[in-house]
Simulated assay, not measured.
Amino acid sequence: MVEAVLQLSMGLPLLVELLALARPRTVEDVDADGNLADMAIERFVQWITGPEKRDAVRAGALALQLNEDVFTAAAGPGLVT
């Protein structure tokens, strides 16, 4: 169970907490509905004002490794500053 939570969360503390709070009983229960990652992203962006900035953060959350080229491809050239 711990291995499944750590693998799915990629070690991100907020995701680890959300997955643990779900109290899964089996490995298959770990984020079975696929919503916990979405919930974590929404918690990260809830304080960001401005829809363009929120969209930029969400787009940057897609890649495991992020550099300016990947971010520009995901978010679009208008959001890179």
Results as ranks from 00 to 15, higher is better:
Met1Trp: 05
Val2Thr: 12
Val2Glu: 10
Val2Asn: 12
Val2His: 09
Ala4Ile: 00
Ala4Trp: 01
Ala4Gln: 08
Leu8Pro: 03
Leu8Glu: 14
Leu8Ser: 13
Met10Arg: 15
Gly11Gln: 10
Leu12Arg: 15
Leu12Gln: 14
Leu12Ala: 13
Leu12Gly: 04
Leu12Trp: 10
Leu14Glu: 15
Leu14Arg: 15
Leu15His: 11
Glu17Asn: 14
Glu17Trp: 13
Glu17Ile: 14
Glu17Ser: 15
Leu18Asp: 08
Leu19Ala: 05
Ala20Asn: 11
Leu21Ala: 12
Leu21Asp: 15
Ala22Asp: 14
Arg25Glu: 15
Arg25His: 11
Thr26His: 01
Val27Met: 01
Val27Cys: 01
Val27Trp: 00
Glu28His: 11
Glu28Asn: 09
Glu28Tyr: 08
Asp29Ser: 13
Asp29Lys: 10
Val30His: 07
Val30Asn: 06
Asp31Ala: 04
Ala32Phe: 09
Asp33Ala: 14
Asn35Lys: 14
Asp38Thr: 14
Asp38Gln: 13
Met39Ile: 14
Met39Cys: 10
Ala40Trp: 09
Ile41Trp: 10
Ile41Met: 14
Glu42Gly: 04
Arg43Glu: 13
Arg43His: 12
Phe44Cys: 14
Phe44Lys: 11
Gln46Glu: 12
Trp47Pro: 00
Trp47Gln: 04
Trp47Glu: 04
Ile48Leu: 12
Thr49Glu: 10
Thr49Arg: 06
Pro51Trp: 01
Pro51Ala: 02
Pro51Gly: 00
Glu52Arg: 13
Glu52Cys: 02
Arg54Ser: 05
Arg54Thr: 07
Arg54Glu: 10
Arg54Tyr: 03
Asp55Ser: 13
Asp55Cys: 05
Ala56Tyr: 07
Val57His: 03
Val57Trp: 08
Arg58Ala: 02
Arg58Thr: 07
Ala59Glu: 08
Ala59Asn: 06
Gly60Leu: 05
Gly60Ile: 04
Gly60Trp: 06
Ala61Gly: 08
Ala63Ser: 06
Leu64Tyr: 01
Gln65Gly: 01
Leu66Met: 03
Leu66Trp: 02
Leu66Gly: 02
Asn67Thr: 00
Asp69His: 02
Asp69Asn: 01
Asp69Ser: 01
Ala74Gly: 00
Ala75Gln: 04
Ala75Met: 03
Gly76Ala: 03
Pro77Trp: 02
Gly78Asn: 07
Gly78Ser: 12
Leu79His: 05
